[in-house]
Simulated scan of single mutants.
Amino acid sequence: MGISAWYMDSSDEDQRDPHQLDPNQPVSAEELQRLGVFHWELNADIYENDPELEKIRKEQGYSYMDIITIHKDTLPNYEDKLKMFFEEHLHLDDEIRYILDGQSYFDVRGKDERWIRISMSKGDLITLPAGIYHRFTLDHTNYTKAMRLFVGEPVWKAYNRPADDSHIRKKYLDFLQDS
């Protein structure tokens, strides 16, 4: 099926809406890779014993893993968490998420500061590079189950924008200039 991504409109309507422009302006997997965003499609039905996932984890050094279910019945402080996930932020480490069930969106800032919405569904594994401004939200299904992967110990700290003076942001901007 392939990843689906597009430039977003500037509407303040419900964050769970697709927010596509009219006409839609798709963003290719190659364009995302130039931003440092990478994607794999895996079989989420066999994630516990998937040799392909094991291979990726080994190659990338993803030693830590946990699973989060984002739904009003399973996530304490659901509404507050959704608001927090949707605040524009960056991390000092890559963000790696594997959608095991449901659907969601990751929004990332393109080179021109425009938002790019990446639609995620069951079987999609994505890596967002350290230093990229991004945010996360559910779509109207209001449900996703995701594996969170890390190199080493998990670091949950998010640095809300503006964090332009951080060393990791500067390192990411240098990467963008070279790509």
Rank of each mutant, 00 (worst) to 15 (best):
P26K: 06
K111I: 11
H140N: 04
I3S: 09
H91G: 05
G152E: 11
G123V: 11
E31T: 09
Y62V: 02
M65G: 09
F175C: 01
D14Y: 00
A146E: 03
N142I: 01
A158N: 11
G36M: 05
Y7N: 07
H134R: 09
G61P: 11
Y7D: 07
Y47I: 06
I96W: 08
A5W: 00
N49A: 06
E113W: 12
M120Q: 10
D94Y: 10
I70Q: 01
R34F: 06
H167E: 13
M147H: 07
E41M: 08
Q60I: 03
L125T: 06
D14W: 03
S179P: 04
K145A: 05
H134P: 07
Q15I: 14
M147L: 12
Q15T: 13
R161H: 14
I70H: 02
S11R: 00
R34S: 15
E79A: 06
K72A: 03
D139C: 12
G2R: 11
G152M: 06
K81H: 11
G123M: 11
M84H: 14
M65I: 10
P23G: 04
Y105D: 08
L149T: 03
D94F: 02
D14K: 00
D73R: 01
Q25D: 07
L32Q: 04
L128P: 06
K55W: 11
K83V: 13
P162Y: 09
P154A: 09
E87D: 07
K157L: 14
T144K: 10
R148S: 02
T141K: 10
S104Q: 09
Y64C: 08
F175G: 00
L21H: 00
F106D: 09
S104T: 14
L21S: 00
S104K: 05
G61W: 10
G61Y: 08
E52R: 12
P23W: 13
M65P: 07
I96H: 09
D50L: 00
G123F: 04
P51M: 04
D174G: 12
M84W: 15
R148A: 06
H19W: 01
L21W: 02
R114V: 06
N49Q: 14
G102E: 10
R57A: 12
S11D: 10
F106S: 04
Y159C: 01
D178N: 14
I126M: 13
R148D: 08
D66M: 09
I168Q: 00
I56R: 13
D50F: 01
H39F: 11
K81I: 14
S11W: 11
Q33V: 09
R169Y: 01
W40D: 12
G123K: 12
R57F: 00
R117F: 13
A5V: 02
W40H: 14
D17N: 14
G2L: 12
R109Y: 13
T69G: 09
K72G: 00
Q177H: 13
G152V: 10
R117A: 06
K111C: 07
E41W: 05
I118F: 08
K170I: 10
Y47S: 13
